[in-house]
């Protein structure tokens, strides 16, 4: 709806009150835009210092590095550090809970597991230790998030410690 008023000789729909409110809102918006950029730089919207998180078992034999804030369909990874004393008979069995696996698109596991089998509500990955028995193993799961929201997930060693963590996944 055009509302036409008069300013001097001009027939024009100026609305100075609206204009002033708009200037104010725009300036608030600029601050908001700056805050969005700063929070993204800090890692609140994906990779960055505030996103980097880790959780470990009390015994210190299992540690998980994961991004607290992730984005749907963006490549991401979690890294498991398994201490040498958690490795039994030259192998270690890592499990991820099925609910977590259902929400992601698993792309690669480094190193590649020797064997994979499905347990109750979980998937188990078997890794063989190197020739040096006390050597820790680092396992990296590379994947994409498939569902956005706030998710909690669990990961652990068969007959060993388990870790729970949560992630915020942006659309």
């Amino acid at each position: 709806m055009a509302d036409v008023g008069r300013t001097g000789d001009l027939e024009i729909g100026q609305a100075l009150d609206f204009q002033r409110r708009q200037w104010f809102i725009q300036r608030v918006g600029w601050v908001a835009m700056a805050l969005v950029i700063l929070s993204a730089l800090a890692g609140l919207m994906g990779a960055g210092p505030l996103s980097h998180a880790s959780v470990g078992s009390p015994e210190g034999d299992l540690r998980l590095m994961y991004p607290r804030f992730d984005r749907r369909h963006a490549p991401t990874e979690v890294r498991l550090e398994i201490a040498g004393d958690a490795i039994r008979e030259g192998e270690v069995q890592v499990w991820l809970d099925q609910a977590f696996l259902d929400r992601i698109e698993l792309e690669q596991i480094i190193p590649e597991p020797e064997e994979v089998f499905t347990g109750p509500d979980r998937e188990v990955y078997v890794f063989r230790a190197g020739s040096d028995p006390g050597q820790p193993i680092d396992v990296t799961f590379q994947f994409q998030q498939d569902a956005f929201g706030v998710h909690s997930a669990r990961v652990g060693l068969v007959d060993g410690p388990q870790l729970a963590f949560w992630q915020v996944v942006y659309p």
Partner: peptide, 16 residues
Amino acid sequence: QRSRIVDRLINDVPLV
């Protein structure tokens, strides 16, 4: 076209 406020919100207003 029907609401002045929607029009202003979307299309802005002219300014001398």
